[in-house]
Design a protein around this nucleic acid. Structure first.
Length: 215
DNA sequence: ACCCAGGTGGCCC
DNA sequence: GGGCCACATGGG
């Protein structure tokens, strides 16, 4: 069933080319900034950081928190997120700000050390594991939970349950996982709300997208 | 003037 | 373990 949903989404929307960024660090920054905020807002923040030449871990580490806050203001929760970025940089510093050092960890260990950073939760950690480190870890977000709650009629699944479900029922291929997650987000946030009939929800013989407040 | 957006941590029970 | 809450900006 999962593979079929993926194929329909892929046929409908095509490849999504996630995660958009010029570097591992920029991806990590984007992952933290996009917490509970639309990507449009994050883009403004990233552009501010780029203008200030702060999309570089050593420079961002050295910069005043106030400057950082001003740059990321458009991404919302700017004080919290500035602190989270600084926490992450403090962590990166232990590895000389070198992502190649982190690449040496096996996946469970890397996940553990990322989760140990205050401000990096499961979704942000898994986003980094998948899109930076190319590990076969499925990212679960609010969209995924809501969509599958409606597709399966099995009630709301937790993050861990749903992640297990995806990882146990698909080839553990990071490219597939990355594309699938992106397609779910794109489907849910754009087309699903606009089109009268949703191609995914038809799988379930149910026009859920029309009835649901959001999917 | 609402409501929502690619969450997380802290606190309570 | 789950149920609330604060955190804050920009777009519809």
């Amino acid at each position: 069933m999962l593979k079929k949903i993926f194929e329909i989404l892929y046929d409908t929307y095509g490849p999504q080319y996630w995660w958009p960024s010029d570097s591992d660090f920029e991806t990590a920054v984007g992952a933290i900034l996009t917490q509970s905020v639309s990507w449009r807002n994050v883009e403004m923040a990233i552009n501010n950081l780029r203008r200030m030449d702060l999309l570089n871990p050593k420079k961002m580490y050295a910069c005043l928190t106030g400057i950082l806050e001003k740059c990321i203001k458009p991404a919302g929760f700017f004080k919290v997120k500035a602190r989270r970025l600084k926490n992450f940089l403090e962590f990166l510093k232990d590895y000389d700000f070198d992502f190649d050092e982190l690449k040496k960890f096996d996946t469970p260990t890397l996940r553990k050390v990322l989760l140990n950073v205050s401000g990096i939760g499961k979704e942000t950690a898994d986003t980094m594991l998948l899109y930076i480190f190319k590990r076969p870890v499925f990212v679960i977000d609010a969209y995924t939970i809501r969509l599958f709650e409606r597709l399966t009629n099995e009630g709301k699944k937790t993050y861990d349950e749903l992640q297990e479900f995806f990882q146990n029922n698909l080839e553990n291929d990071p490219d597939l996982f990355g594309e699938f997650h992106a397609l779910i987000v794109v489907h849910c946030k754009t087309v699903c709300k606009k089109k009268p009939v949703c191609s995914v929800c038809k799988i379930n013989q149910n026009n859920l997208c029309k009835k649901a407040k959001m999917v």
